[in-house]
Amino acid sequence: MSDRHRIRGILALPALAGFGALLFWGLSGLPPFGHYHGQYGYLINNLALPQRHATNAVTAVVFDYRGFDTLGEEFILFAAVTGVVLLLRRERGEGEAGRTGRVTSDLLRWIGALMLGVALLVGLWVIAFGVVTPGGGFQGGVIVAGAALLVFLTASYAAWHRIASESALDPVEGAGVGIYTVLGLATLIAGAPFLHNFLGPGRPGTLLSGGSMSFLNWATALEVAAANLVLYAEFLEEYVAPAIRGRR
């Protein structure tokens, strides 16, 4: 055992030296700290507000200037989760015995109930104001999914199972990517470029600003929240539920 460890250590040395040299070579070529060299960032910072009525330039890039890339990202997530579902999901008998996994501590249940409300609100707020302040559909979607996960952590597996049901989540996940794509095609039909932003009447810095970005943002939030919940549901069902049911 110790021999093998020693050989591994010796073999690792040249690789470590090589990577270390590459790392230092790369680091030495970086611009000095605080001296940002990208022109694109300055352009966006100056143009996002007048052009797209968005005070959060990052969201303007994600859902407008580079909205097409985000469509690709959504399909990456969709395809990844579909892959997980294909691998893990199989016909399961509903209502198997001993699957409740109820949390017995009253304190934990109360804390969970309080945190669930707070987390859900924060998630929805992060999504809704993505055009105005930091946040958006991606981050907010994960937070909403995390809030739902609190049901499993602080209530019971049975309650979680009802929330994260396949029949409810699969259509929502499909709708997320679907709405995004349809919105893009709708702009084409209207004679504008793909995913063109039709600016609405909302004043910049308010909830209604940013034009059609908000719709893409909410479509993304649906997709991300549902995709995460499907992922958690499959993992919990495959790996954690057997432990709750008791080892066979």
């Binding site: 992060v126 946040g135 991606f138 981050q139 994960v142 937070i143 999914a145 995390g146 996960l149 995460n228």
Partner: peptide, 10 residues
């Protein structure tokens, strides 16, 4: 925010 969501939940 992205880091927060990924590192503490996902």
């Amino acid at each position: 925010l992205s880091m927060l969501a990924v590192t503490t939940i996902a």
